[in-house]
Design a protein around this nucleic acid. Structure first.
Length: 581
DNA sequence: GCCGTTTTCGGCCCGACTGTTTTCAGTCG
């Protein structure tokens, strides 16, 4: 599907037009169409073939022609022209949080910076303060913004890396010589971003396998290629390493390349204690200096077992207590997809989603879920067409009608109610009590001082009708830092008020992160998995990123709110409501 | 650039925050 590519190009056009001070409605038209194109579940190429592109809201004759031009020639001439006329540093600067077109143009015109490194250096030398309307604070924010971008530089979010790795594996399965195949590295540990993608293969002919890999259509260029290892860049600029090993070493290699480094070091220490040697080829008996007999290596199970350990799931291989737990036989039974009965955070076309309630229900049923919470935004979030109390009540009636028609599945009535800056909620208790599950979230005034933000969030959790705090820290990976909030206090308040904390499963949020999720569970707080889906046909599947995060946080089925049946879930929610009438 | 029970031109979302200013421009969602 080229939907995403086209959306990115339209965004780029909008950015450049903005820098050129074009008509803001024209700019907005490009942004809206970018959203529309990436938001639809249908393949844009298919729609082009049947001539129905203009049925997408926000796309008229002109944009249709640009889409067709791209599908035909691989580029949009308008964008090529605009790019020729625009210094790339201007676009780079727009990615810095807090810098918009005006500031970017000003800095570029007055100081002539050529790169972000340049800009950072000048900011550190306080050169930016020579400019009008820029003082110490703005300068500091710019430095902070650049450092924020740097921390993600060269890293790929799991939401892109995982599907790509799966595609590569599917392609490599076409290579006859390959007998075993998996992705390893930080991706297998379900880290939220990865530096590169590691693929491990067992093959009877490493050379042929490497040749096959280097010839895949998604390979843009080969970085290095040897007899057992090949590194390439894909057309998106992501590095993929393939390593080919013998079958008898496959488990040891998988273990080695999965990491983490800290985990591997601990394993090697355990091997030494047992007078064994562990490396990427296997577990060996130690014979006075020389390498002895191989006693394990073909599977990871075998490797762990040779070290006297049970199999340790990749998501917790971080040396944060898993070795000790394994030695004591106390490893957690981590939550898995089959434990999850419902999705507790979705949007429909009543607010900013693209699916009707009917679509949402059928997509949920197809995904094997028992229930889905419809949690459209509340009215203060105008940008997302938040629902007024009146519209929410009509939605409730509509959900009741739909539920009467379907079997074996339920739409739950809900709201993602806004937590206003003073900590009050955007809907009255009288409305909230009509809902099955209320999730509350901050969507405005992100830059509040720590104490006030913490107080604001805790005050919302105290409301008896708020069952879940959604995306508790508000971070957007690579785009927005978390709010300045005292998470320890929030976790304590969640335990005290019986409010669940969400693990928002959108791959660019993954909020809570594993560290906080683990802390919360230890404090007796339930975690709620929600996809925050705005397009159920594509995004209900994001549940897997949330599950990966939950597993990284050592969570088991019983820690997860939506591993419950709908009836058990309602009982838990009633308990909080009754406790604070 | 899109769109139309306000219909082919004239609107289009706009409130809130931040940091810089003494009244507002720029940015964000």
């Amino acid at each position: 599907m080229k939907n995403r590519e086209i959306a990115n190009l339209f965004e780029e056009i909008a950015d450049i037009l903005e820098l050129r001070g074009e008509n803001r409605f024209r700019i907005n038209a490009y942004r809206r169409s970018a959203q529309a194109v990436s938001g639809i579940s249908r393949d844009i190429e298919e729609m082009a073939a049947e001539g129905s592109i203009e049925s997408i809201p926000g796309i008229g004759k002109d944009l249709r022609e640009k889409i067709e031009e791209y599908l035909r020639s691989g580029e949009i001439s308008l964008l090529e022209r605009l790019k020729n006329e625009t210094p790339p540093i201007l676009l780079d600067m727009l990615r810095i949080p807090g810098i918009g077109p005006k500031t970017a143009l000003l800095i570029h015109a007055e100081l002539g910076v050529g790169s972000l490194e340049d800009l950072k250096r000048m900011a550190l030398e306080h050169r930016l303060q020579e400019l009008p309307k820029i003082k110490e604070k703005t300068e500091k924010n710019i430095i902070r913004g650049i450092e924020f971008l740097e921390s993600f530089k060269g890293r790929t979010p799991i939401g892109i890396a995982l599907p790509l790795a799966e595609d590569i594996i599917e392609s490599l399965e076409g290579c006859e010589e390959v007998s075993r195949l998996e992705y390893a590295g930080s991706l297998r540990r379900h880290c939220e971003t990865v530096g590169d993608i590691d693929i491990l293969a067992a093959s009877s002919s490493p050379e042929d396998t490497i040749k096959y890999f280097a010839g895949l259509s998604l390979v843009e260029s080969v970085i290095v290629s040897g007899p057992t290892k090949c590194s390439v860049f894909t057309s998106d600029g992501i590095q993929v390493d393939l390593r080919v090993v013998e079958e008898k070493s496959y488990g040891a290699a998988l273990n080695y390349f999965t990491g983490s480094k800290a985990h591997n070091i601990r394993l090697r220490e355990i091997a030494i204690e047992r007078n064994l040697k562990l490396n990427e080829y296997g577990v060996f008996e130690k014979k006075d200096g020389g390498s002895g007999k191989r006693i394990a290596g073909a599977t990871e199970d075998e490797v762990y077992s040779a070290l006297g350990l049970p199999y340790i799931p990749p998501e917790i291989r971080e040396d944060t207590g898993e070795i000790e737990a394994a030695l004591k036989g106390g490893l957690p039974e981590l939550v898995s997809r089959s434990d999850i009965r419902g999705d507790l955070h979705t949007h429909s076309d009543w607010s900013d989603g693209n699916a009707s309630l009917d679509d949402l229900a059928s997509a949920g049923k197809r995904a094997g879920l028992k229930y889905i919470l419809v949690s459209d935004h509340s009215m203060s979030l105008r940008i997302a067409h938040g629902l007024t109390a009146k519209r929410l009540i009509s939605q409730i009636a509509e959900i009741d009608r739909i539920n009467e028609k379907i079997r074996g599945f339920r739409l739950l009535k809900g709201s993602e109610v806004d937590i206003l800056p003073d900590g009050s909620l955007d809907l009255e208790d009288g409305v909230l009590k009509k809902l099955d599950v209320v999730i509350a979230a901050v969507h405005s005034s992100f830059k509040m001082k720590r104490d006030r933000m913490t107080e604001r969030i805790i005050s919302a959790m105290k409301n008896p009708f708020v069952s879940v705090l959604a995306h508790p820290t508000g971070r957007l990976l690579g785009t927005r830092e978390p709010y300045d909030v005292d998470m320890d206090a929030v976790i304590a308040a969640a335990a005290e008020t019986e409010t669940a904390l969400e693990i928002n499963s959108h791959p660019l949020r993954l909020d809570l992160d594993p560290v906080h999720a683990r802390k919360a569970a230890a404090a007796g707080v339930l975690l709620s998995l929600g996809t925050d889906s705005h397009d159920p046909s594509l995004e209900l599947d994001h549940l897997r990123y949330g599950i990966g995060t939950a597993r990284r946080g050592w969570l088991c089925k019983e820690h997860i709110l939506n591993s419950r049946t709908a009836a058990a879930l309602k009982k838990l929610i009633e308990r909080k409501r009754k406790r604070n009438p």
